[in-house]
Amino acid sequence: MEMGSAEELGVVLWDAKQCVQCPAQEYPNHERTHCLPKPVTFLAFEDALGAVMACMTLCFFVLRAVVLGVLVKHRDIPIAKANNQALSFILLISLLLCFLCSLLFIGYPNTATCVLQQVAFGLVFTVAVSIVLAKTITVILAFKAMRPGRTMRCLLRSGASNSVIPICFLFQMIICGIWWGTSPPFVDIDSHSEPRNLNIVCNKGSVTAFYCVLGYLGSLALGSFTVAFLARNLPDTFNEAKFLTFSMLVFCSVWVTFVPVYLSTKGKFMVAVEVFSILASSAGLLGYIFVPKCYNILMRPDENSWKALKFLKTDVPNKM
Rank of each mutant, 00 (worst) to 15 (best):
A221V: 08
L285Y: 05
P109I: 06
M1I: 14
F99D: 07
C176S: 15
H74I: 03
N203S: 15
V52Q: 08
S206W: 06
S219L: 15
Q85M: 04
Q172P: 12
R147L: 14
W306Y: 10
L116Q: 11
F246H: 05
P184E: 06
Q117T: 12
L123E: 15
S94V: 07
G287M: 10
P184Y: 03
V66A: 02
N304M: 05
F121G: 01
G215M: 07
Q85E: 09
T113I: 02
P292L: 01
A120L: 12
Y262K: 08
N233Y: 08
K266E: 15
S5H: 09
M56F: 10
R150A: 15
S183E: 13
A80W: 01
I106M: 00
L95A: 00
M152Y: 15
A228V: 13
A120M: 14
A272H: 10
A54W: 06
C35A: 12
F105K: 11
N83E: 08
F42T: 01
L43G: 01
S219G: 09
S206C: 09
M56L: 14
L155T: 11
F311P: 00
G177P: 07
D188C: 01
T208Q: 10
S183F: 03
E7V: 13
I178Y: 13
A280K: 01
T57E: 13
K310L: 01
S158M: 00
C19M: 13
A209E: 00
T126Q: 05
S94C: 08
A134T: 08
G223L: 15
C19Y: 11
E8H: 09
Y108R: 15
K73N: 04
S253H: 04
S282K: 06
F229R: 05
L249E: 11
R64Q: 15
V164S: 06
I137M: 12
L68G: 15
Q18S: 15
D302L: 02
A142S: 15
T226H: 01
P185C: 05
A308L: 04
L36V: 14
P109L: 08
P235A: 05
G10I: 08
N296E: 07
K266M: 09
